[in-house]
């Protein structure tokens, strides 16, 4: 399982966010260029419809593939009290022909995206990953070179951390407390609960850019 929060930021403030993240994380950023194919089971397959994502990491000399299954979010009073979403998530590295296999098994391409940006991976109580990316759609199937942004001028910020049924509350607390440091630039909340952009982002970004990211925690 994993803990996850999401937010949006205007592209003009992404550079400031990168400077802030660099200072906070103390690790080098990694480039992010991922082709995400979302597959759905055909109408007759499975008791209920199932979804699976195939992620192709294009930033490798030889692109690598991952199968990802994201399950339902944890519910109940306990889940309502924490500010991050806790959900099941399983990933498996696979060889490059896995798309062909899923097609042969009766899965269909539902939609595909190209995410381009950067990510930071670091340890802070939990193993936290922050990715900042523009989400692009393709006018034709698999035409990643012709991809165009889904939302002009906006990028998505994802903060995730792997968790277990035993430690998810600690991981959720670590993610929440980390998100507070980003609050001047981006408001992070449970996925699918849009909270919009932060009104003070422009001022915070200006301050960070003039400071050059020299402030560390």
């Amino acid at each position: 399982m994993e803990c996850v929060v999401q937010g949006i930021i205007e592209t003009q403030h992404v550079e400031a966010l990168e400077i802030l993240l660099q200072g906070l994380c103390g690790v080098q950023r990694e480039r992010l260029r991922v082709h995400e194919l979302c597959l759905k089971s055909g109408p007759n397959l499975g008791v209920v419809t199932s979804d699976v994502r195939l992620l192709c990491d294009l930033d490798q000399p030889d692109p690598t593939w991952t199968v990802k299954h994201v399950g339902g979010a944890m519910r109940g009073a306990g889940a309502d009290q924490i500010s991050v979403m806790v959900r099941t998530m399983i990933e498996s590295k696979v060889s490059k022909n896995s798309l062909r296999m899923f097609y042969a098994l009766g899965y269909k391409l539902d939609h595909e995206l190209l995410k381009v940006g950067f990510a930071f991976h670091f340890q802070r109580t939990a193993h936290i990953s922050v990715s900042v990316s523009s989400v692009n759609k393709m006018p034709k199937v698999h035409a990643i070179d012709e991809a165009v942004p889904v939302t002009h001028g906006m990028q998505i910020v994802d903060v995730t951390a792997p968790a277990t049924p035993e430690n998810y509350s600690e991981v959720a607390a670590a993610v929440s407390s980390f998100c507070e440091f980003l609050a001047p630039l981006v408001h992070l909340s449970k996925p699918f609960i849009s909270t919009g952009v932060v009104p003070t982002a422009a001022a915070a970004a200006a301050s960070l850019m003039s400071d050059g990211g020299g402030t560390t925690l």
Partner: peptide
Amino acid sequence: FIIKSQRIVVEADTNILSIMEKLQSY
């Protein structure tokens, strides 16, 4: 995984077994 009739062979981490379990399609 192998689908002989279509000449497909796929290598995966053993985590794929948990994914197959979740998908409930095979």
